[in-house]
């Protein structure tokens, strides 16, 4: 018996979410009285694989090659490993990759999915998870009725816990057929913090009035080491790429700090960011609904407040 966790790397280096996942899987394993086996697909050096042990994995299974995500190939690999390891729970990220694999694996293993979780299961008998529903407007408890369960964990929602253990590394030769999806070209996003990975996010809305005014957002983001985001009208207008749209139909994110500038705070926007640990709103309309769901607010012109805020943060950092 085991808890299996699928870890993701980027060019051979584990993403932070992988450590979140292993930490989470370790707690789940404690709840059901078993240990954690981590799976890594792709070419990752043993030194790097060993890091998974420090977060609680007892065993690391490496499946080399297969670096291009083909949903069927990845699913077959995970299903084989899950069977070999007698996995009772499989933990996967609720990111693009996880959303591609988890549903297929669910069918292959006849495993119920607890999708987009932000905390540990509520109980193990019956196996019950708590998840957000209606895009964050409510929470629900869901019973997973099958013997094997799949849990997909939202990014930045579970603390990384370093325990300092070691893992044994095994190689698994997965017998998989050829990929049916062919990757022809890749554009890697470089030099920019990925929105889903960002611990701080500075976001702009229509209140900034023009794409030319985004410098104030980018400057503050740079001072903070934050990612940049925007509201739906801004991406619809083409001022910013759609990848930056946060909200119900865009990206759902949960950074530690979310700064909303010139965003009125429509219910759909707030749904996408309501899990942020701290929300700051800057808007020239004191009656804007964004203030109802924010922790801190400033009524004022974002074009003036954002540069002032960037300066004040620089000063505070230099102290």
């Amino acid at each position: 018996m085991s808890v299996l966790v699928y870890t993701e790397n980027w060019d051979g280096v584990f993403k932070k979410l992988s450590f979140e996942l292993v930490s989470y899987a370790t707690k789940v394993a404690e709840m059901i009285g078993t240990s954690v086996t981590a799976v890594s697909i792709g070419d990752v050096a043993d030194d790097e694989l060993n890091r998974l042990g420090t977060f609680g994995a007892l065993k690391v299974i490496k499946v080399e090659g297969n670096t291009n995500l083909d949903n069927q190939v990845y699913t077959s690999i995970l299903a084989e490993v899950a069977k070999a390891e007698d996995a009772k729970v499989v933990v996967i990220s609720h990111n693009n990759t996880g959303k591609a694999i988890a549903p297929r694996l669910s069918v292959k293993l006849n495993a119920a999915v607890g999708a987009g979780l932000i905390k540990l299961p509520v109980s193990t008998n019956p196996f019950t998870v708590s998840k957000k529903v209606f895009s964050g407007k409510a929470k629900a408890n869901v019973v997973l009725k099958t013997d094997v369960k799949i849990l997909t964990l939202s990014q930045n929602s579970f603390e990384v816990i370093e325990k300092g253990g070691a893992a044994t590394i095994e190689t698994f030769a997965a017998d998989v057929s050829d990929a049916k999806t062919v990757v022809k070209d890749v554009q890697k996003q470089t030099g920019k913090i990925l929105l889903n990975d960002a611990e701080m996010v500075v976001s702009g809305g229509r209140g900034l009035k023009s794409a030319d005014n985004w410098g104030v957002i980018e400057d503050l983001a740079e001072v903070l080491g934050a990612g940049t985001a925007c509201s739906r009208p801004v991406s619809d207008e083409g001022w910013r790429p759609h990848e930056e749209h946060t909200g119900q139909t865009g990206k759902i994110i949960a950074p530690n700090l979310y700064i909303a500038a010139g965003i009125s705070g429509a219910i759909q926007h707030m749904a996408g960011i309501s899990s942020s640990k701290c929300i700051v709103a800057i808007n020239n309309d004191a009656d804007a609904p964004v203030f109802e769901s924010s922790d801190y607010g400033i009524v004022g012109d974002a074009m003036k407040v954002l540069p002032a805020l960037a300066e004040a943060i620089k000063e505070a950092k230099n102290k």
Partner: peptide
């Protein structure tokens, strides 16, 4: 494979400072 057993609305947020 799953059953929704309970729903809960989030606690109201304290007023914005």
């Amino acid at each position: 494979l799953t059953e929704f057993v309970e729903f809960e609305l989030p606690a109201p947020k304290p007023p914005c400072k």
